[in-house]
Design a protein around this nucleic acid. Structure first.
Lengths: 107, 107
DNA sequence: GTGTCAATTGAGCAGTTATTCAATCATTGG
DNA sequence: CCAATGATTGAATAACTGCTCAATTGACAC
């Protein structure tokens, strides 16, 4: 029995398959979060304002994205700031992110 | 309550979101099938030989791909031949397929 | 310290999905 | 027609996912 998304390389050298990354991104809300972060780092509150999701639910989605190493978190005073994972950012070109196995464009 | 994958545009002018297409592709087996079909149309038997999945299970996966309009089916004697959907093929460049909202490369 | 805002966590459920099994359909060959 | 092969279907179920709720943590102001 595997816990949600823990397959996605939480441990050191785990195999991160294309399918497992896609599983995390195959969700309207999480995709919307990633699109938001393409504009740059954002606090949870800011993301929440844009998307209008229940904050507790958004938190769960953000955890899923973090577990998949797609985003990173940073404390900023009371707020938590999320950003696209450095590895993804490096490969970013415009509004597309390259996951290694595949590219998402959001055009 | 939505039946499996029926969101994906089985009806005429339905909205096909990026997330819903990704949901179908976010599966090892279905991704493998799509990769196989990038080489050209293949019969179920041929796909089965490459992937080694239970034929009845493969059939279910193929149905999911068909429902999502990602692949098409054609009878050839006893065999059923599957191919990437024309709309996808048109947009194909090498080993990548363009879903409109995103591109998958399998490099 | 208390109170408040921002965010997270864990548990529980409701709905969904993948897989297996048995039964069925479709086509060809004898 | 019957048997065999290729493929599909539907039902049952076991596992998973997303959502909601209540409780908790962390940081700041007073």
């Amino acid at each position: 029995m595997r816990p949600s998304f823990s397959i996605l390389g939480q441990e050191s050298g785990e195999d991160v398959s294309c399918a497992s990354v896609l599983k995390v991104l195959a969700d309207e809300t999480r995709l919307a979060v990633v699109e938001q972060l393409l504009e740059g780092p954002k606090t949870v509150s800011a993301i929440n304002e844009s998307l209008g999701v229940e904050s507790t639910l958004l938190s769960h989605h953000l955890k899923a994205l973090r577990d998949a190493r797609l985003v990173t978190r940073k404390r900023e005073g009371r707020y938590a700031s999320y950003a696209l994972a450095p590895a993804l950012l490096v490969r970013c070109k415009g509004r597309a992110i390259d996951l290694g196995c595949c590219t998402l464009s959001f055009s």
